[in-house]
């Protein structure tokens, strides 16, 4: 299965150099174990743009789709056989990036 992991944050651009080092080491571990799919940091939600392309002309709106006290500051997509493996791995990931994480399964391909 694949899981999306959202990195939960409430402050803008709050990552530190130590955290970056720990995250790199953790990502190496994901690669070595065959769990790596993708990871990346996200820009602040205030710079996002909402698109509605359902009508004749697409409509672009400044800002995130939902205003919240907390948001995703980064994400992983990992490969894991089940939730127990994902939770165990990402408990280490949470320590490495020094943030709470949300683990969410990707729907299986049909």
């Amino acid at each position: 299965m694949q899981y999306l992991i959202n990195v939960i944050d409430s402050r803008s651009n709050s990552g530190t150099a130590e955290e970056a080092v720990a995250i790199d080491a953790f990502n190496e571990k994901l690669r070595a174990g065959g769990h790596w799919v993708f990871a990346g940091g996200l820009a602040d939600p205030t710079v996002s743009t909402v698109i509605d392309g359902r009508g004749e002309e697409p409509i672009f709106t400044d800002g995130p789709f939902v205003e919240a006290k907390e948001w995703a500051a980064g994400l992983w997509v990992i490969e894991a056989p089940d939730l127990d493996v994902a939770l165990k791995l990402m408990a280490e990931g949470s320590k490495a990036c020094n943030r709470r994480l949300e683990v969410r399964p990707l729907l299986p391909e049909r």
């Binding site: 299965m1 899981y3 894991a80 056989p81 089940d82 939730l83 127990d84 994902a86 399964p105």
Partner: peptide, 10 residues
């Protein structure tokens, strides 16, 4: 079922 919680002994 959807989150992949396994039927496995810890």
């Amino acid at each position: 079922a959807a989150a992949g919680i396994p039927y496995r002994l810890p």
